[in-house]
């Protein structure tokens, strides 16, 4: 379970301090699906980065099953990112299976097993026949599927997705959302996603957190 306790995040731009998050607290039980919504600049991506261990809060604590990730050393935080969370990103210069294999390499999976695992994961997201393709040879939706397969590589408990349907047409967006939802519903993974799309947020999430100016204004 994620416990977010009064976290604040400030950025010093040199001229002035930007308060991206101003005391945000909430909890996400394991296996739930949560959507973080709000207008641009409200702090939703900052919050997702903090949950993903890419950044540290200026103040407050984030616990995952009792582990305070906001106080972890850099190397422990890397371990956390490797094994506890899967973030949806894609390296464009290598093929689909190499993307997954890269995550597996970082996860210390033996080389001989990587290609098979990568192929299985890509098949799970419906790209079994596109494993040797570069992202430039894939459609936007397929790229997102590769990124999802890559996020699943080290069997994380939580999937973090920043605008998973951004730049996708509505049909593809729906398929991607269905895929993410199935990971949550079938595999029991916690899904935390940042989205602009209130409709998908409502359809595919157990809870919606709405942010405005770095604060939670609504929690359904």
């Amino acid at each position: 379970m994620f416990q977010i306790i009064n976290i604040r995040k400030e950025y010093d731009t040199g001229k002035r301090k930007v308060h991206a998050l101003r005391g945000v607290s909430f909890e996400i039980p394991d296996g739930r699906s949560v959507a973080i919504v709000g207008k641009s600049g409200c702090g939703k991506s900052t919050l997702l980065n903090l949950l993903g261990g890419l950044d540290r809060p200026s103040d407050g604590d984030i616990f995952l099953n009792g582990l305070n990730i906001s106080r972890l050393k850099s190397s422990k935080l890397a371990e956390y990112r490797k094994s506890k969370v899967g973030m949806i990103f894609l390296i464009h210069s290598i093929t689909a299976w190499e993307n997954v294999a890269m995550a597996l390499a970082i996860g210390d999976v033996p080389r001989r097993n990587r290609k098979n695992i990568a192929k299985d994961l890509l098949s799970e997201v419906g790209l079994g026949d596109r494993v040797d393709h570069l992202p430039s040879e894939l459609s936007g939706g397929e790229c997102q599927r590769v990124a999802i397969a890559r996020a699943l590589a080290n069997s994380p408990e939580t999937i973090l997705a920043d605008e998973p349907t951004g730049n996708l047409d509505s049909e593809t967006s729906l398929k991607i959302m269905e895929l993410l939802s199935s990971l949550n519903k079938k595999d029991g993974k916690t899904l935390i996603m940042v989205t602009h799309d209130i409709e998908y947020a409502g359809k595919f999430s157990d809870a919606i957190i709405t942010l405005k100016d770095g604060q939670i204004i609504d929690q359904l």
Binding site: G52, L54, S75, A78, Y80, F89, L90, I91, M102, I106
Partner: peptide
Amino acid sequence: REIGILKSMGAKNSQ
């Protein structure tokens, strides 16, 4: 960006 993604996957600074 690639370095950022590697780090998001759990790559350490030393790696």
